[in-house]
């Protein structure tokens, strides 16, 4: 019955409904400081909504491909940009960090759309999973109670904003120009073209290009990384080691200086 009904609903509507239902379900399921009946009914409702959302996504599954790539890109790009802006303008550094996590999610979506499957995942894992958590730890170690005065004012906000806007304008102009006149930027150099002419394999973008959207994308990326860029990988490994050693060295040297500060803070 329902199944027969579904096809008449457009995939977009379905997706929107599913997403909304998911959100509502989660909101309802989360503890919200209530008790008694209201609490129980809210849980039930949330559970039902969750089931509905699940159904909507399952139904959507086969038709999601028809949702335009552009639409998905638009959504994730919006998420990235809005969250980025929120990161910049958040008064509280903790909120800024969380908004940054949101922006990371958006960026990772854009990466996925652009064909960077591995990078999309890696961004989430490395940034959100490691770096951002480190930021939050530091914030919790160092953040004073309440909102610090320096979080409530900015340094030359007008100049900075204008500079950023001008930069964006220049970049947009440049990007627009290269879309309008690809020969000015996107011509393959003659030497490389000659080299590529002998390449038997051909990607979707012509001879010499690789198919980034191939099924074994990650395997190919790994091959590229540990093949052509092996030396760079080794250097990056050394860089990580150096950063590790350096951080520890700085911490241990600063320990002596910190003792006075620590004792001052320990005895308020």
């Amino acid at each position: 019955m329902i199944a027969s009904l579904l096809p008449s609903i457009s995939p977009g509507t379905l997706l929107a409904g599913g997403v909304t239902a998911t959100a509502a379900s989660l909101w309802m399921l989360l503890p919200r400081g209530r008790s008694g009946r209201a609490e129980r009914s809210s849980r039930w409702l949330g559970g039902l909504l969750g089931l509905a959302a699940l159904a909507a996504f399952i139904a959507l599954g086969r038709r999601l491909g028809s949702v335009g790539e552009d639409t998905i890109f638009l959504v994730v790009a919006l998420v990235a940009v809005v969250s980025g802006a929120a990161t910049v303008v958040s008064r509280s550094p903790v909120y800024a960090a969380i908004w940054f996590a949101m922006a990371l999610a958006g960026v990772s979506g854009v990466l996925l759309v652009l064909g960077g499957q591995f990078l999309g995942v890696a961004t989430i894992v490395v940034y959100a999973g490691a770096i951002l958590v480190m930021f939050l730890f530091v914030l919790m170690l160092a953040q004073p109670a309440g909102l610090a005065p320096y979080d409530r004012v900015s340094n030359e906000p007008l100049l900075a904003a204008v500079a950023g806007a001008v930069l964006l304008g220049i970049l947009s102009l440049s990007i627009g120009r290269l879309a309008a006149d690809p020969a000015s930027c996107c011509a393959v150099p003659a030497t490389k073209a000659a080299l590529l002419a002998t390449d038997p394999g051909a990607g979707p973008n012509g001879p010499g290009t690789v198919d980034l959207l191939a099924a074994d994308h990650v395997a190919r990326l790994g091959g590229e990384l540990f093949g052509r860029h092996l030396l760079a990988v080794e250097v990056a490994g050394v860089l990580l080691l150096v950063a590790l050693v350096g951080s520890i060295a700085i911490v241990s040297r600063g320990a002596a200086d910190d003792e006075a500060t620590d004792s001052r803070r320990a005895t308020p």
Binding site: V81, G84, A85, T87, V88, S154, N155, E156, P157, L159, A160, A161, A163, G164, A165, L167, L168, L171
Partner: peptide, 10 residues
């Protein structure tokens, strides 16, 4: 550009 503005202003 957003990041730049933040870096300069915050």
């Amino acid at each position: 550009a957003l990041g730049l503005v933040g870096l300069l202003a915050r």
